[in-house]
Amino acid sequence: MLLRRGRPGEVKGFGPWRFAALLDAAHRQLGGPIVLVWDNDRRHLSAVMRALIEARPWLAVFKLPVYAPKLNPAEGVWSALKRALANLAPRGIDELAETVATKLKRMQYRSSLLDGFIAQTGFILEQP
């Protein structure tokens, strides 16, 4: 696997329109309301993104406090990944990227591990 560095002039990242399209597709597939928990990334706070959110009555967005690693399940993922990479001495960026991708893919199929990351936040996993 080679690290994808993008083409010159190609947009890097996920813009608001592409993210809105992803949410619309998820809404169509799931057939119900979506609850989104976001950190304070500047892309999440833009006027365009706010307008796109407001246009979707089936979407509820909750923002985490400015610094709240204990409330963010992704922090558990990154912590576990860093532990898994602790003694790695990659020969280059491509090897590092391949190893990271493999370890994240393995985590993806361990639902109990992912449930644990959510449980660490204190969020409720079942509907009340």
Rank of each mutant, 00 (worst) to 15 (best):
T99Q: 09
L22Y: 15
F123D: 08
M107K: 01
N72S: 05
A60L: 14
K103Y: 04
V35C: 13
A89M: 05
A84Y: 01
I93M: 11
Y109S: 14
L64I: 01
V66T: 11
V48E: 13
R42I: 10
F117G: 00
L52G: 03
A25N: 04
M107D: 00
P65Q: 05
D24Q: 11
A86K: 13
Q29I: 02
K82Q: 13
V37R: 13
V48Y: 08
F62D: 03
G32M: 03
R50M: 12
L104D: 01
L2I: 08
R5L: 15
H44P: 03
F62T: 05
E10W: 01
L88M: 14
A68V: 04
L59M: 10
I93Y: 15
I124Y: 06
E54D: 15
L85I: 04
R56T: 07
A55C: 02
R110W: 12
Y67I: 02
R4Y: 10
W58C: 08
L2R: 12
Q120A: 10
E75Q: 05
F123M: 13
R18K: 14
A60E: 12
R110Q: 12
S46I: 07
A60C: 11
A60F: 14
V61L: 13
L71I: 05
V35P: 02
K63M: 15
G122T: 11
L22F: 15
F19R: 06
V66H: 11
P65R: 12
L125T: 02
E10D: 14
R91T: 10
L30Q: 10
K105N: 09
V61S: 07
K105Q: 15
L113T: 09
A68Q: 07
L45S: 08
L2W: 04
R43H: 10
P57M: 01
W17N: 11
R56G: 02
L64S: 04
D39Q: 03
R43S: 11
N87A: 15
S46G: 06
R28W: 01
S46M: 04
V66R: 09
I93L: 08
Q29H: 04
L113I: 08
A101I: 07
V66P: 15
V77Y: 05
E95R: 13
P69D: 06
F123C: 03
S46T: 12
G9I: 04
G122R: 04
T99F: 00
H44C: 03
G31L: 15
E126T: 10
P57G: 08
N87C: 05
Q108N: 13
L30P: 01
L114P: 00
S79L: 04
R28M: 06
P65K: 04
H44F: 07
L81C: 02
A21Q: 10
W17K: 12
A89L: 10
G122I: 02
L88Y: 00
I124Q: 06
I34F: 09
R91W: 09
